[in-house]
Design a protein around this nucleic acid. Sequence first.
DNA 1: AATACGTGGCG
DNA 2: TCGCCAAGTAT
Length: 353
Amino acid sequence: MGISAELLGWYDRHARVLPWRIPPGQGPADPYRVWLSEVMLQQTTVAAVKSYFERFTSLWPRVEDLAGAEDARVMAEWAGLGYYARARNLMACARAVAARGGFPRNRAGLAELPGIGPYTSAAISAIAFDHPETVVDGNVERVVSRLFAIETPLPASKPQIHALATDLTPNERPGDHAQAMMDLGATICTPRNPACGICPVSDPCQARRLGIAADLPRKAPKPEKPLRRGTVWIGLTDSGVLVETRPAKGLLGGTLAFPSTGWDGSDLAPPAEADWQELGLVRHVFTHFALDLTVMTARLTTVPERGRVVPLRDFSPLALPGLMRKAWSLARPETARPRSGVAMASRSRTPQG
DNA sequence: AATACGTGGCG
DNA sequence: TCGCCAAGTAT
């Protein structure tokens, strides 16, 4: 079918310039950089990833360098990107790859590594090794849903989408084809207001013909997000601040944080006896719940029962996940500046209870 | 097969 | 203001 030729021609002319990408026809790409970028891009926008990718590859140019890095250092550099299991799997994967002397050069071998699932294994295989694997991400699901006017809502339509995407995958330049599909979804076949007028494959697109492109893909309704509440304690000494490393599993697992309660209403005592004062409220929206976090602060006069005091000189709020940065900005707004190049959103508000 | 898992930008 | 969405994976 003509889709592949049209798509690749468009990609040759319009491929986005990205830090991890080799321009079309100039491959092959470095599997380390492909892997790192693909993991960072899981459920994360290109704009958010760029500066993190530059930073990681500057600090750790090869997978062996990353494999030799300390956990806390990697977690600090990942802070703010979200989905912190990715960072933990990143380290485990880097060490496994370094130990075996390089990345597996096929999809099945890649898929055995931590943090590499169906999408990422196919993407690395296609982009770094030019294997004709079918790469299906959210962009491709949308593009295919529209090309074939699939009315079945996601996620039920996933098997059908994957089968059709497989039919579209060419044996020539499969890596460029995969990137072209994703670029098309990101720049033209967008979720809202798709630019069908300049789309290279509008001619064979069934949704376009039917006038329902913007309505696809249909999606199953999402469950409501409950509102949860919690408390965080920011304990200060003359020159230090009380922090702890969160347990490796669960929400914000393995990140640096201020001691807090759970988010399920579970009562937990403050980490130290002190004259705790309420600073305000931080609202944060996670994937599956919203959180109203009460921020407490105190001058520490007793030895804390939890956590450790780190010198303020060695403390950067940039090493904290976003939620904890918001809390910190209430305690020490003058030191809570955004990471350059990464919009750290607005200043924290204090929503009314 | 559902559910857990972050964050920021956009309309 | 608010819901949607972003190059998904693990369990």
